[in-house]
Simulated assay, not measured.
Amino acid sequence: MTRIIHFAVQFVIIGLAVAFLLVWLRPELLPAGRQQAASPATSYADAVNRTARSVVSVYTRTMVTEPLGPEFSDPLFNRLYRDRTVTRPRRGLGSGVIISSDGLVLTTQHVISDVDDILVALWDGRVADASVVGSDPATDLALLRVNLDDLPVASLAEDDDLRTGDVVLAIGNAFGLSHTVTMGIVSATSRGHLSLASTEDFIQTDAAINAGNSGGALINPDGEVVGINSASMGQETGAQGISFAIPASVVRRVTEQIIEYGRVTRGWMGAELTDVSLRLATAETLQPGARVSQVHRDSPAWKAGLQRGDVLISAGGQQVRSARELMQRIAGTEPGSELELEVLRGNQVFTTSVELIQQPPPQG
């Protein structure tokens, strides 16, 4: 019996010694160690350093002509100069992201729209004139070129796998303060119906996006660009922490087409759609659809016989889940393609086909 107790004590002592040695060599094996290893990052400096060098400041100048008379408070001077004009420069600012080492810079379309001159300021202090390669008002994206080589290039995220609650950082030329970094989370994805662009699929974030941030990078903790900062709701509307960015997948698709074609090819059938739910005789539950609210004259939808009030049930053999989803699907289809539609009009269901054309530029 004594021998057994002696053996057990030796076994326990050896076990404790082995455990002590393992913990000394691998402290993360302890629960407290694991909790410490899994704790949130306390700094995102590595992510910022990876991307900041590829973010540029964009400065624009537009010469505008204004009447000279209203500048004078004296009625006599107003009468003397009322027919005279003065030309002054109007300056603007924004941000951009370098996407190729030979000088391609991505920014937002509203930053460079209708301007006379564009200057790009780099991380290292160099300044270069920029020319517009192409733009896409439907997504508020534009591509610039500067005559510089061996530039640092941002890494675009491969997938739109952002989730609500993920940490993101915005880098840009906020109020002319170059490479300002703000932090927030993803508040929502696939935001639409914002009247910011005709083709909307925005990331919503509470990271501060101020004047001058438009066109800058929205990055994840790995330093990958997950979006291009586009707009924010101002405090004058009562909003706080509501900003929007264009997802990397949209950025990649639009950029590739601008480089290849000089513009973005986008299908269009010429009908405005709204969401609707309906119950068909063949279905037990409510089914989503897209109601036609307007048909543009002489458009493919007009020629296919679609009328206001028609409800689109399926398109191309796929059920319509929402008006926005269908319009995005149409926009992503090559112009010239034929799309078969299943339509509900009154109590009758019929099929028709539309031949999509290139989406015309936004009006106004």
Rank of each mutant, 00 (worst) to 15 (best):
E355K: 15
S100P: 10
L156F: 01
Y59S: 12
I242F: 04
D166W: 14
R308L: 04
A121T: 11
A188H: 04
G317A: 02
A208D: 02
A154K: 07
R308G: 13
Q307K: 09
T351A: 14
V153N: 06
D116G: 07
Y81R: 12
R252W: 09
R253I: 00
A207R: 03
R266V: 00
D275Q: 08
N213C: 07
W24L: 13
P75G: 12
S135Y: 14
R84I: 00
Q358H: 11
R163C: 08
W268R: 03
E334Y: 13
L143Q: 05
G184Y: 06
V127E: 12
E342T: 01
I258A: 03
L106W: 06
E272I: 04
V127D: 10
S232N: 06
G94C: 09
R90G: 02
K303P: 00
A217T: 03
P27Y: 07
S249P: 11
T108I: 06
L144D: 06
H179L: 07
E224D: 11
I357E: 15
W302Y: 14
R253T: 10
G192I: 04
Q328H: 11
D117S: 15
V58G: 07
L156N: 03
D124N: 10
R61Q: 14
E28S: 15
D74F: 11
G227F: 07
I171N: 11
V168A: 10
V111N: 01
I219E: 06
G223S: 12
H6R: 15
G96F: 14
S299A: 04
V146P: 02
V97C: 08
R308T: 13
S214C: 10
T255L: 02
V97R: 09
V167G: 08
Q294A: 15
A188M: 05
G184W: 06
G215S: 04
V58W: 05
R145C: 05
V48I: 10
S195Y: 08
L144R: 05
G223M: 12
G94R: 03
A211Y: 07
P247H: 02
T107A: 05
A170N: 11
D83H: 11
L341P: 15
A38L: 13
Q36F: 09
V86Y: 02
G332C: 03
V9K: 11
G346D: 01
P75E: 11
G212E: 06
L122M: 06
L218M: 09
L148P: 00
I185S: 04
P27M: 08
V133L: 09
A207G: 03
A211I: 12
L286R: 10
V343R: 01
A323P: 04
N213D: 05
V132K: 08
V276D: 11
Q235A: 07
Q257P: 08
R263K: 09
F77R: 13
V354D: 01
A170M: 12
D116A: 02
I219Q: 04
M183K: 15
R266D: 01
L25I: 01
T333E: 08
D136V: 15
L344C: 02
A121V: 12
A304W: 07
D160M: 10
L326A: 00
T255P: 06
V186D: 08
T60F: 00
L151A: 13
L278F: 00
T62W: 03
